[in-house]
Design a protein around this nucleic acid. Structure first.
Lengths: 231, 231
DNA sequence: CGCGGCTTTGATGTTCATCAAGTAAAGTGG
DNA sequence: CCACTTTACTTGATGAACATCAAAGCCGCG
């Protein structure tokens, strides 16, 4: 990681409207003063499950994964966050320690606000909390829905689902570079690495996708959608 | 369902401290006036996924299940709520319609506050919203953790886990009446009804539980814990 | 009393994880 | 920059775990 010294002011930050729009100039100033920006390299752990939460964080650029770890079990990826997402929101109000680990899966810049400043605004600004409530709820419900969508499917359907997720939700393009390894895909959709590879190869043999290392091209999205629905 | 006419005043309600403690007498009065109590029989659906949310609800007595349904797939039970739980909290801020269905699995009394009155308090009482934020977050994180704990286990481990869940979390007793059918257990821990029965029978043959219809007795809790950890 | 839903058990086959073994790619230190 | 190590990727063979199908008994309820 690397602390960025030439940080953006909140007042000109493109993500300001996402959450901080209801803040008074004074509140925004207080947030601005207690924040820092940090750059993480691909693979670096940003925060670890169980650690004390000291900052509220959100993503400016890059991609991160939220995941759970437990001795003796495989890691499980809870969600993938993209710029503008509030990655610490899932832990920050249910206790003083992280419930999930966070790691960068691409080079990532995080904006981090000291937790005391963040909570101070919560106690003074009504609109802000209410807004937060909605954002948090949507985020949680999204995770539950995605997990539901994954576990109800068979392996072929899961792979189809996650390919469409990357194409439609993350990259908005049928051609993209896989941000995560085969093993991480396995951790995300709850199956083994071998079967991820096997089914991807199968899709390639059937001519519905093209693979070159991390680069994926969904040649026949309609058929992938069909597999997603039926498989 | 049956509307209860002789309803408790919020001022004397034993659940008042759970959420409404920070309310002013006026606010409490407003909530009190716009609420009703409803009794549901075992099996009755309280609200249906997709319906508009008109009331904030919490459980006074009984047990309910939150579940997701989808055409062509088996139902999936998200969680089981007991008295004092805020059953609508999981939908109320992420949209205007229910994300989950709610049904009574025992005779249940629900206290329901009109959504406009509830949201009015949210807009005026800072402490109340902040409190709500925490409660909601804990509830969501609990669901994610439980689901994580279930899906990472094999079938035997899942059954052991859910038996311990009922005994420790819901009934605080090693002897209890199963509140739900075998099929519903299957929907809760993501397996088939047949395998739920099979493994329960297996546990009985091995002498670690006693079963008589819905009545379950955990004879050897230590061994169940061991199965839960290893299986 | 009979119907439908819940429960139970067995037989069967599919899906999937595990094991093994090899190749390719990506870091690492001299 | 190259030898070396490690990690990621790939494929096949095998067996275990699990779902599905089938059939029968049970219970509650109208």
């Amino acid at each position: 990681m690397e602390i960025i010294h030439d940080i953006t002011s909140c007042k000109t930050c493109i993500y300001r409207t996402l959450l901080f729009n209801s803040l008074t100039p004074e509140e925004l100033d207080s947030i601005n003063k207690s924040k820092r920006e940090i750059k993480y390299r691909r693979g670096e752990v940003i925060s670890r499950q169980g650690q004390e939460i000291k900052e509220f964080m959100y993503l400016k650029t890059g991609l991160v994964k939220l995941y759970r770890t437990e001795e003796g079990y495989k890691d499980q990826i809870i969600s993938i966050s993209k710029p503008g997402d509030f990655v610490t929101l899932l832990s920050i109000f249910s206790g003083s320690n992280y419930k999930y680990s966070i790691a960068a899966i691409e080079e990532t810049v995080i904006c981090a606000v000291r937790i005391d400043s963040f909570k101070a605004v919560i106690n003074t600004n009504q609109a802000f909390v209410t807004d937060l409530l909605g954002k948090m709820s949507i985020m949680y419900d999204g995770i539950i829905e995605t997990k539901f969508n994954i576990t109800k499917r068979h392996l072929r359907g899961r792979i189809a689902y996650i390919l469409l997720y990357f194409a439609e939700h993350l990259y908005e393009n049928n051609k993209f570079d896989l941000p995560i390894s085969r093993r991480e895909i396995a951790e995300l959709i709850e199956m083994t690495t071998e079967n991820v590879i096997r089914i991807l190869s199968e899709f390639r043999r059937d001519g519905i996708i093209e693979i070159d290392g991390k680069n994926i091209n969904l040649v026949d999205p309609d058929r992938i959608k069909k597999i997603c629905q039926l498989g």
